[in-house]
């Protein structure tokens, strides 16, 4: 277990509840200790590259400290496997790949593909992978309402979807459905969703998602409670959990992936009376990516500078 693993276990404490053993336990493997400073600085590089969130699509970023711990957790869970991200505004995908590429983690997935409807996110992933020469990270523009047909199945999926406060978790279920499909109904997944003891709706959503998974012959293999905080002005105390799903033995695909068009599933997708109306968020081409936008500021020159200009 790395330093981050130790910190994570310390933080999760009694809330980390093992519901059932993982389906295919791997032999215990000694992990090299993680250099916390290198890990945080690597994640800082990723955060610098991340597009700003669009709240109207429920894009809300995880706080940086939690991203560091989450990246190590997910890298450990998906070690050696092909991992698909069904949406990834947080850029956990990039963090994992970058931590591996920089040698901060000596474990992690063999391949990472991000499926996201925001072209800014897709371009940020591709640009980062290109700049850092990360060959096992790519991204595709994809809307979760469309059928998903990967060239070959992924072993596992990760999603941190709109949390479904206004639709009893149906928006989460849409993302989970695509995650299950991308693994050919035989893989594993991590779903990051709200987890709060005071509010009623996160409990309803957790129950709804677990029920949905069960109907697709997936079971809850583990749940790490109240792990992550977010840059969420109107609910700064709201945390999320990692809900681990795994296919039951012998599970099979009931048929091809199909577009999702049922208005009942979509009417409150991004919040109350907020059905999806946008297929893709398109990126405007800019030359100042990652630095201050030109329309944010203007320069007032020193007197001597002005004189020279004259």
């Amino acid at each position: 277990m790395g330093l981050l693993g130790w910190v994570r276990d310390l933080m999760s404490g009694e809330d980390a509840a093992e519901v059932a053993p993982p389906p295919k336990p791997r032999p215990p493997q000694e992990r090299r200790r993680v250099d916390l400073r290198k890990a945080i600085n690597a994640v800082s590089d990723v955060v610098q590259n991340r597009p700003r969130p669009l709240r109207v699509f429920d894009q809300i970023h995880m706080k940086t400290g939690d991203m560091v711990l989450q990246s190590e957790t997910i890298a450990d869970w998906s070690d050696g496997k092909r991992l698909a991200f069904i949406g990834d505004g947080d850029a956990i995908s990039v963090c994992i790949a970058y931590l591996q590429a920089r040698g901060v983690l000596d474990f992690g997935p063999s391949q990472i593909t991000v499926f996201d409807f925001d072209e800014r996110t897709v371009e940020a992933v591709m640009n980062f992978a290109d700049r850092e020469r990360i060959t096992n990270l790519d991204a595709r523009l994809y809307n979760v309402l469309d059928a998903i047909e990967p060239d070959r199945p992924y072993a596992c999926f990760y999603t941190n979807p709109p949390w479904g406060a206004s639709n009893n978790g149906e928006s989460v279920n849409v993302f989970v459905q695509r995650g299950i499909e991308v693994t050919g109904h035989v893989g594993e997944g991590v779903v990051v969703i709200a987890d709060d003891d005071d509010l009623p709706w996160p409990k309803e959503v957790l129950a709804s998602v677990q029920g949905f998974a069960a109907r697709h012959r997936f079971y809850v293999s583990r749940m790490q409670r109240k792990l992550h905080e977010y840059h969420l002005d109107d609910a700064p105390e709201l945390k999320s959990c990692n809900l681990y799903l795994a296919a039951l033995p012998g599970n099979a695909s009931p048929g091809p992936s199909l577009p999702i068009t049922d208005p009942l599933r979509l009417e409150n997708f991004y919040g109350l009376s907020q059905p999806p109306t946008v297929r893709y968020v398109r990126a405007r081409k800019r030359l100042d990516y990652g630095v201050a936008h030109e329309d944010e500021y203007e320069l007032e020159l020193l007197e001597s500078g002005r004189e020279r200009d004259h």
Binding site: W163, A165, D198, P200, W201, D234, P236, G271
Partner: peptide, 18 residues
């Protein structure tokens, strides 16, 4: 009645930066 804090009492919601 709306958003991620649905169900939270107003007196607990309006504090700090909110």
């Amino acid at each position: 009645p709306v958003g991620p804090s649905t169900g939270r009492l107003g007196s607990r919601y309006i504090q700090g930066r909110v």
